[in-house]
């Protein structure tokens, strides 16, 4: 698993697995090609690992266009088909306004203020060790 972008022209976005959750952190400008690649990667990762949830952290994304907005919606729809819940976390105000102005309100998508909130949201309420505490023990 790679931990960062390999170079400025890389189209690869890292998909991290934390317990039952796949964490995808998007940084900076996301090109169309990278977005398409990401969509594929997530689909494969969900199918391959039978992860229960996908958290997409978009707090590092300052600008979106209609294409990226559609990709968000499609990722969520794909993950749903594969029986994984998708949560988009940490969207910037400017990005939210842009998406709304574009008419992409993403009605089926769950959202959270930040990654911590998203993990808490996905954790079962009775679990004593929720991933929200930032610690995951593997017995």
């Amino acid at each position: 698993m790679s931990w960062g972008l390999e170079g400025p022209v890389s189209t690869h976005v890292p998909v991290l697995r934390i317990g039952d959750v796949l964490l995808v952190t998007l940084q900076g400008e996301l090109h169309d090609k990278a977005a398409e690649q990401l969509q594929q990667d997530i689909g494969e990762a969900v199918a391959g690992s039978s992860a229960g949830a996908v958290v997409i952290d978009v707090s590092g994304v300052e600008i979106v266009d209609s294409f990226l907005g559609r990709v968000f919606a499609e990722i969520a729809a794909n993950a749903k088909l594969l029986a994984a819940a998708t949560v988009v976390a940490g969207m910037r105000p400017a990005v939210a306004i842009t998406l709304v102005e574009l008419g992409l309100t993403l009605p089926g998508l769950r959202t959270a203020l930040d990654v911590q909130e998203a993990l808490r949201m996905l954790a079962p309420p009775s679990s004593p060790l929720s991933p929200g505490q930032g610690r995951q023990e593997n017995a």
């Binding site: 988009v88 976390a89 969207m91 910037r92 105000p93 709304v100 102005e101 309100t105």
Partner: peptide, 12 residues
């Protein structure tokens, strides 16, 4: 409606 939708996208 727009404000509500944008706030929801941000997780609020």
């Amino acid at each position: 409606m727009k404000t509500v939708a944008a706030a929801r996208l941000m997780g609020a």
